[in-house]
């Protein structure tokens, strides 16, 4: 990883809305002339990217604002709701609770990489089949958490109780969870898991 001071780039980044890394990133009192941009490499859904980011930029903001992968949502921004869940090195992570620089060199999977060739992934299809979404805002996080769950528990039977415990970090304010749990169990089964 290369670190360097780019005073000129920094002030341009700070004032041009086209490269705005998020509404909360800039406020009063920051010494903009000293903003240090760090070069990072991310592989997102199989595509390699090299980017310059501020150390304080959150992974979710890089995904949404710089890579325009807006399927990963920001709900609470306090690491409670789970709608920003992505996979980093195969593990579920709240992208609002990780700095982009921490993810340097990592393999990242987002909801955009789940369907292949326009065909829904079995887990996505199960969510549709079971009416596991209404407004859909929480769905990307639910799917990414569910996929990580199935991967981690593929050698053991998946139960209703396990799914409920594993979804504790993902909030849905519409459906009441019943159809989500049914969808995760059905999706896991369709993926060949022992559900």
């Amino acid at each position: 990883m290369r670190s360097s001071i780019h005073a000129e780039n920094a002030s341009r980044t700070a004032y041009l809305p086209s490269s705005n890394p998020g509404p909360w990133a800039y406020a009063q009192g920051d010494a903009l002339s000293l903003v240090e941009l760090v070069e990072i490499s991310l592989t997102v859904n199989g595509t390699a990217h090299t980017l310059e980011v501020e150390p304080r930029t959150l992974l979710v903001d890089v995904l949404r604002e710089k890579l325009r992968l807006t399927g990963t949502h920001v709900g609470c921004d306090t690491s409670q709701c789970g709608v920003c869940t992505v996979h980093v090195a195969g593990r579920p992570v709240k992208a609002c609770a990780m700095l982009a620089v921490q993810a340097d060199g990592e393999d990242i999977a987002t909801i955009e990489g789940v369907a292949k060739d326009g065909v829904l992934h079995p887990m996505q299809a199960a969510f549709r089949e079971h009416h596991a979404l209404q407004c859909g805002f929480c769905t990307p996080g639910m799917i990414m958490t569910a996929l990580a769950l199935v991967e981690r528990t593929k050698d053991a039977p998946l139960t209703d109780a396990i799914v409920r415990k594993e979804l504790e970090g993902n909030f849905c304010r519409c459906t009441g969870y019943q159809p989500i749990v049914a969808a995760v169990l059905a999706g896991a089964k369709a993926m060949g898991s022992d559900a």
């Binding site: 789970g82 869940t85 593990r91 579920p92 992570v93 609770a97 990780m98 958490t145 970090g169």
Partner: peptide
């Protein structure tokens, strides 16, 4: 502790 995503980190 926390939830699966918190436990990853």
């Amino acid at each position: 502790v926390g939830d699966p995503a918190v436990r990853s980190c």
